[in-house]
Design a protein around this nucleic acid. Structure first.
Lengths: 189, 189
DNA sequence: CATCGTCATGTCAGTCACTGACGTCAGTGA
DNA sequence: TCACTGACGTCAGTGACTGACATGACGATG
């Protein structure tokens, strides 16, 4: 028999999500989470670099999805077309791996806490930078690449926020397409 | 004679900036800053809510400049024209109150630390939200307002980063105008 | 089958950011 | 003269996070 029950990271993740939803992020200590998962506090920090990290585990998935879509966009496509392509591809993949209800719970936790919103912003900024870098690698001018990266993140973030809003039933990609159209109209005016 | 030397907040600010630049943000403790300013640690937290706050003091100045410019934009202007107007007004004001070299020092400190970059992102997000709200108050549709707020922040942030880049000599507003043109080209393509 | 290293965890002691409660005393106004 | 306030000090915490070291099940290797 194993000395310890396996899957400590998953147990910690689950316990953290439950406790954050029940009592809030700030009012649940790492010790609480560890106890609920049946490990010590030290073990928590062996699996997650800090208390917030437990909510941002699969961070790289989204980033690599966006970057991969940019790299895989058809040659000769305009920068905006590449952005649209990446939004479609990554948005579709996100819907496949993430349940909407689960995303709503997590979204509520993050929205309720400043430190978590800060972390979410950083994640998005990293994605924007990675997309910009991928565009530069395709030959886009530096200034345009930076702007396009920000633009992609703006459309995605706004679409995602609306996707998890209560009562919303549309596809994430549909919302993204709509917002991209709104952006075109905005800049063309 | 006064019981304590006046201007504790200013002394703390100065000491913090100097120590951060010399030894880095993480490796200088609040106790160090307080000692350098001739007060106790407790007093530091009476003036600044947390260790990072000492670098983000005049945060509201920029926000109110942007919001004020949006509110003061000519009636009937398109959303993009309002954004351009706000960038010009706030960018110009920023250059008047902030020395470029000082901004470079602060920028280097912030760039060197993740926690500080997170905070900077949050500040920008707040500005985007405030600008979006001001646009909605003028009658802009919610989706367009959110996108326009993000767009303004994207242009400003990129322009500001280039403004404090080593060797850069152009005006902040000139860089902003150039980036806004690049954005128009990007979306029109 | 004995032994040896690895790996995930526990244990312990410590640093540092941040907070609440309370005391102190110069200045200010009645 | 006296009560009050504002700005600070003092003290005793809590909680996030880290480094160093111990432990014991497991797989590999002889």
């Amino acid at each position: 028999m194993a000395r310890w029950a396996p899957g400590a990271a998953a147990r910690l993740h689950e316990a953290a999500l439950r406790l954050f939803a029940e009592r809030g992020f700030e009012t649940t200590s790492v010790a609480d989470i560890a106890a609920a998962a049946g490990v010590t506090e030290r073990t928590f920090f062996r699996h997650y670099a800090d208390k917030r990290e437990v909510l941002f585990g699969g961070e790289d998935v989204l980033l690599t999805a966006f970057v991969g879509a940019v790299q895989g966009a058809p040659a000769g496509a305009s920068d905006l077309a590449i952005v649209a392509h990446a939004l479609d591809a990554a948005g579709g993949e996100l819907q496949r791996i993430r349940e909407r209800e689960q995303a709503r719970v997590r979204g509520a936790i993050v929205a309720a806490n400043v430190a978590l919103r800060e972390r979410e912003q950083l994640k998005m900024t990293r994605i924007a930078a990675a997309v910009a870098e991928a565009l530069r690698a395709r030959g886009t001018a530096p200034e345009a690449a930076d702007l396009a990266g920000d633009l992609l993140v703006s459309v995605f973030s706004n679409a995602f926020a609306r996707w998890i809003a209560p009562g919303e039933t549309r596809d994430l990609t549909a919302i993204q397409t709509e917002l991209l159209d709104a952006l075109r109209a905005l800049v063309a005016a």
